[in-house]
Design a protein around this nucleic acid. Structure first.
Lengths: 262, 262
DNA sequence: CCGACTTTGTGCAAACGTTCACAAGGGCGT
DNA sequence: ACGCCCTTGTGAACGTTTGCACAAAGTCGG
């Protein structure tokens, strides 16, 4: 989802689900390397990455046969291969549009510049912010989008603006030549095919969590004795009208959810 | 991925992929409602949500038959049904641990409190930050995790700490009764079954984008005429050595990628 | 040099997700 | 009241992802 380009070219060679996990493996590999570990089995690496070992082996097999049977994988070598596959052996200039709270947090985020990514510029539309320095960058005007993209040959853009400006910024980034966009604004961006959009959305993640939490709460309730169930039921009288936000299910549901955790 | 609890209880009734899209539909519905639109067809709604209409209809069909054939869906009614399914008709107290750049940005994020979620507390381990006010909240000490969780019956926790503290914070949240965790720290959290973890990871998203961007660059190059290809090749003389950064594909890759966009 | 042991890489089947295409069902004009 | 037209809801085909289970292939001790 939130990908447009996938359909554009059929034979990818390497499955999307696998691509999404490679960065996780890479991180685990770096952690192992830092601890001075030279060799790792699929079982161990899978453990660090939070997946099962068969999946890990199949994923890695898409990159080639880089393991040694009976031994495992050479950590450094695998780091290199995965990095190369992900395109991290070159460095990617990134432009961040929006220097509000989020843009600032992103600019200050350490893991950003660490591997392969470099902030080419930080832009904002607010003239009160333009010119100030954030994380070693002088904020430039959003009017410079085109100039910055061409100047630094940027192909990855990060949108950290309010929702209202996001589509406009996106259009300008794309027109200027950006083909990969990471969108933090809570809207669905529309882009021409050939442009890749990924979104990060706090609110959506919370809602998904709420769904499961509620589910757990209900299951929890189902496990309650009949008496308690009836009590809750009674408290919920005259519940939903098809209007807006129904009453019922008071603020105590959180407690029910807790019950499952134990 | 990044979900643990799914396996714990077999018959969900409603597919995970659908759940992940419901918040998107909900947002689109709110936008329609704001524009005073009372009825919407699956085609239109799918358009706003960036999915195809068959998928949208199948997704909604999992909640029940809330449409009217020949007409479409009643926007307000559907808002209510989707909200209810997601558990947004109750409100969820959330605790944010970590008041660094990111925690601050989250606390200030408007869309947070807007629908169903309420920041119960903002915690930090740094005594220099504890006591300061951020977004109408006084930052409390991370030592209070257990107290806050119990006090507000919190079941959703957000981890915005450095990677090194994340697992410890997670363990304490879980021990205190939190069963849903949104993790911004770049590590794989390990939690007991029954606890739901979702992760948001800038660095992973960028790496996935880089993969596709690289792919496009290569395809783009392949599609160039032989003369242009040779020109680019020449311009790229003596680029990086095969040590860390692979050869070829210099800083002008963005331009090559553009070729695909058109 | 051989045989026991370990771990990879993969064929296969089941689970899950997406898309097509159309029957079923409801509104609306006449 | 009737029939046309529109849109939903869904059966069935297809594609993707997961996980099992095991043969292939390597190491290492003797």
């Amino acid at each position: 989802m939130s990908r447009r380009s996938t359909s554009a070219h059929g034979s990818h060679g390497i499955p999307e689900a696998t691509v999404a996990r490679l960065p996780v493996y890479l991180r685990a590999l770096y952690a192992l390397a830092d601890r001075g570990i030279a060799t790792v089995s699929s079982e161990e690496l899978a453990g660090s990455a939070g997946v099962n070992s068969a999946k890990l082996r199949k994923d890695l097999s898409h990159l080639g046969s880089y393991g040694t049977r009976g031994v495992g994988y050479d950590v450094e070598y695998l780091v290199y291969q995965v990095s190369r596959e992900l395109g991290l052996t070159q460095d990617w200039p990134v432009v961040i549009v929006g220097a509000g709270n989020l843009g600032r947090a992103l600019a200050n985020y350490g893991g950003f510049a660490s591997r392969g990514f470099r902030i080419a510029a930080l832009l904002d539309a607010d003239s009160g912010v333009v010119g100030t320095r954030i994380a070693r960058h002088t904020v430039r005007s959003a009017a410079d989008i085109e100039a910055v993209v061409k100047e630094h040959a940027v192909s990855i853009g990060v949108i950290a603006t309010p929702a209202a400006s996001a589509q406009g910024v996106c259009d300008r980034l794309v027109a200027a030549g950006v083909t990969s966009i990471l969108n933090f604004a809570p809207i669905v961006l529309s882009v021409p095919s050939g442009v890749d959009v990924r979104k990060v959305d706090l609110s959506i993640e919370l809602q998904i969590l709420a769904f499961h939490a509620q589910r757990r709460a209900i299951v929890g309730v189902a496990h309650l004795g009949e008496r308690e169930w009836q009590e809750r039921r009674a408290r919920r009288k005259g519940a939903r009208e098809p209007a807006e936000a129904g009453p019922g299910l008071g603020g105590d549901t959180g407690v029910e959810a807790q019950a499952v955790g134990t």
